[in-house]
Design a protein around this nucleic acid. Sequence first.
DNA 1: ATTACTATATACCGAGTAA
DNA 2: TTTACTCGGTATATAGTAA
Lengths: 219, 219
Amino acid sequence: MNDKFVGALRIIALMGGIHDYIAISSRELGDMLGMSQQSASKRILELLDKGFIHRDLGARRQRIKLTDKGTDLLRKEYLEYQKIFEMRDYLLIRGIVITGMGEGQYYVTQSSYQEQFTEKLGFEPYDGTLNIRVTPSDQSKLDSLRRGGGIVIKGFEKNGRTFGDVRCYPARIQSIDCAIAIPSRSHYSDVMEIVCRYHLRRTLGLKDGDMVEVRVSLL
Amino acid sequence: MNDKFVGALRIIALMGGIHDYIAISSRELGDMLGMSQQSASKRILELLDKGFIHRDLGARRQRIKLTDKGTDLLRKEYLEYQKIFEMRDYLLIRGIVITGMGEGQYYVTQSSYQEQFTEKLGFEPYDGTLNIRVTPSDQSKLDSLRRGGGIVIKGFEKNGRTFGDVRCYPARIQSIDCAIAIPSRSHYSDVMEIVCRYHLRRTLGLKDGDMVEVRVSLL
DNA sequence: ATTACTATATACCGAGTAA
DNA sequence: TTTACTCGGTATATAGTAA
């Protein structure tokens, strides 16, 4: 379906079009795709029509950048490859145990979140989270999770304060079922929070600085 | 070129065909690719012809698995996506540790800067900076940071002297949170200054001439 | 139920060329 | 130089059907 679009999108992304507008002529794109200038021009029009790219058609050179929809399409493909090469249905994320700032506990104990956790994840969470600082080489995996998919726990308002959506993925640590929780409006961070029915530190005898492996299910 | 093959190869791989033979009918494959049984059958023949898959055509059901060539094709695609997304949210800048001229320390110890660092970066900086001479091939990355974005630390006047704005980017060295600081009215330079809550030289055991990698967040 | 042939319909590509 | 028409040739997909 979108098969024929990803080739062109990937080239544009690789040239920097995932960050910002880049100047690229239909001839250049055609060369890189192994097709004619005419076909590349048509492909660009199709991408535009599908909403995968933005274009700024200057007098001399057109400038192109990916839309969020275009980026999401590529990210979805990326996740497929991760599934194939990392594991079948899991993503293995490594990190070390750290002490968080108590935010997780604050969130988990909100009754609205708690009810949804129980309903959508199938367990009643312990009133605290385990914080993992993800190793640099696995941070791109965490980012893929941040972007889409997972189970959405709806946010709510209470006493004038807004609690945003939280994205969850079922996971396991040493064969104990748990879930990783990612606030939707989360800023850049290499910290991953784990919710679980048990007090993971006690149950697994974990202390700060211990290395753990989390197997995250991709549905 | 091989564009039309990867879709089918990916599905076969995802079903386990990257490890071992799997039973998959042309109808099933067609459904998953959004095409007819006839077309999927033809596609399988083409994959066979190109040497991307092995097939064991049993009486009832055919069994398929990827060849090394097929796996390599997918792996090459995977690498492309890694390039795209590893670079999307981070910039990796390499350089060597050098001894600066004490300017960094002079700046960081100004109380107005210090307060803003604490508020906007979330840590109170150690009263000195780590100076990195950026390797030539990464200097264009430094330049793009100089141009815009980041967190702005406002300048001020004191005793008739003007302290200009400083642009900061959250960053990490070996999983230690830090930030790179770039004076706004800075001239061209291949030196990058790092502010951090810790004395990085001591904490990481760095000395002049050591190579370091700084992972800069683009927000 | 399969896989895969043939014949026909459709989508795609690129040469020529206009703006 | 660009981008992007039209149009004719080719490659690709499907329906019908055989084995």
